[in-house]
Each structure stands twice: as structure tokens, then as C-alpha cells.
């Protein structure tokens, strides 16, 4: 496959025959896919279908049992732990369902933490990032002093603090009410408009409505490529 193509067609993520086993459990089974730069892709499927494993493999948090993964031109299989850390720092922003903010750091410090690992903590930049998610006035609050929606917005701000080209979000609205869900989704849409590649794991068909492609996983395999409209019909 050619990774260096016209920027509009450039495949930023490519998995070739990727399998991931956990002992005897096959979490992903011979998955091949490619995602173009700037695309918004939704990964759907029942619990245990391998969605989170797929995200973790793309993030370099896990290594495939077989097959290869190329992200932004980087062959992840060839990297050691330090190389993978550097890859994440430069390319990936991750948002989790449980937010995973550091509880003893304030909102702005959580963002600066990501900058710190990247080598350039900058309070002003961190404040600007908080402003993007509409939480500048909550900068000095600890996560325990923020609502679930606010925590997730801080987590998104932290994920984009180092301006990664790829945002991975694992059930980002799973713990949010409808109002906060819409706020978070509008932030993701804004990121997409800025040219970020978004990969969202979700059970929620509404979220997938605006995406460019849907990957349906079942028992660790891609069931079929689906369009957002088909997905909406299936879930009613």
C-alpha cells in the first residue's frame, strides 16, 4: 500500500492482517483496514468485540500478536517501549470513557501534564486549549470539583494539547447525560473541521451519524463496512 499519496487520500492508519490474542482469547482476528487523514471513523460493536483492543493497538498501547500496524508512516511493530511513548506523544490524543484525569492536578495542570511529557509545558497554551472546550473559568478546579461533562471536556483538551493528528476516543460520551454528550460531540466535530483524524468507539448510533465511515466489529472481526445511515437504520 502506498502511504504517501495526495493529502486528501493519504492513509494515516493501516492495519494489515492484524490479530491480537490474550492467552487463548482472540480479541482481534485478522483485521485489515485503512483510515484516511482527516476522516471521522466510528467503531461499533457489542461488548467484547475488540473495539478497545483496536484503539489500543492504534495507540501503540498494545502490540499485535501478528500482522502489522502503520500510523502516520510509522511501523509500530518495529518500535520499542521508548519509541512507542515518543510516537504517542507526537501523534496521538486519547479520550477515555472514565476521563482518567489525574485527581491531584487541576484542570489546567492536567493539560500541562500532557505538554510536560511532550517537553514543553506552557500555561498560556494550556489555558487556550481549555478555552476551546469552554472551560477556561474552571482551570483551577480539581477534577473532583468538576461535573462529568466538564471532566470529559478537560480530557479532550488534554488529548489535543500537543496538537496530535489523530484523536482516539473510547466511549467518550458513555458516562455523560444528553446535554453534555452534545457538547462533547460538537467539540469532536470542530476537531474534525480542523483536519484531525477522529476514531470514536461507541455503542451510540447517533454519534456515528456524522462520521465518514463505520467499522463494525463482531468477535474480533470486521463484520462489514457500513455507512452511517445503515447503522442508524439497524439500531432504529
Amino acid at each position: 500500500m502506498n502511504n504517501i499519496e495526495n493529502s486528501a487520500d493519504r492513509r494515516i492508519i493501516t492495519l494489515r492482517n492484524t490479530t491480537k490474542n490474550f492467552g487463548t482469547l482472540m480479541a482481534l482476528n485478522d483485521v485489515s483496514l485503512s483510515i484516511k487523514e482527516g476522516e471521522e471513523v466510528t467503531i461499533m460493536g457489542p461488548s467484547g468485540s475488540g473495539k478497545t483492543t483496536l484503539i489500543n493497538l492504534i495507540a501503540g498501547l498494545e502490540m499485535p500478536t501478528s500482522g502489522s500496524i502503520t500510523v502516520n508512516g510509522i511501523e509500530l511493530n518495529s518500535l520499542k517501549q521508548e519509541g512507542l511513548a515518543e510516537f504517542r506523544r507526537d501523534n496521538i490524543g486519547i479520550v477515555f470513557q472514565q476521563f482518567h484525569l489525574i485527581p491531584y492536578l487541576t484542570a489546567v495542570e492536567n493539560i500541562m501534564l500532557a505538554q510536560y511529557f511532550h517537553g514543553l509545558p506552557d500555561k498560556e497554551d494550556a489555558m487556550n486549549t481549555l478555552e476551546i472546550v469552554g472551560l477556561k473559568d474552571r482551570a483551577r478546579h480539581l477534577p473532583s470539583e468538576l461535573s462529568g461533562g466538564e471532566q470529559q471536556r478537560v480530557a479532550i483538551a488534554r488529548a489535543i494539547a500537543n496538537e496530535p493528528s489523530i484523536i482516539l476516543a473510547d466511549e467518550p460520551t458513555g458516562n455523560l447525560d444528553e446535554e453534555n454528550e452534545q457538547t462533547v460531540l460538537s467539540i469532536f466535530r470542530q476537531l474534525k473541521d480542523e483536519g484531525k483524524t477522529l476514531i470514536l468507539v461507541t455503542h451510540n448510533a447517533d454519534i456515528s451519524a456524522g462520521s465518514d465511515a463505520i467499522i463494525r466489529l463482531e468477535h474480533g472481526r470486521i463484520k462489514q463496512p457500513t455507512t452511517p445511515i445503515e447503522a442508524l437504520k439497524e439500531t432504529g
Binding site: 495507540a59 498501547l61 517501549q81 521508548e82 511513548a85 515518543e86 504517542r88 506523544r89 507526537d90 496521538i92 486519547i94 477515555f96 482518567h100 489525574i102 501534564l113 500532557a114 511529557f117 511532550h118 488534554r158 500537543n162
Partner: peptide, 16 residues
Amino acid sequence: RKEFGIFKSLGASYTS
């Protein structure tokens, strides 16, 4: 362990 996991997801190396 979870905190270290978060650090790693943010790109922290083992050394850092």
C-alpha cells in the same frame, strides 16, 4: 498503576 497507565497514554516514557 492506573496513574502510570494514564501517564503512558499521554506519551510518558518509562524513564519520565
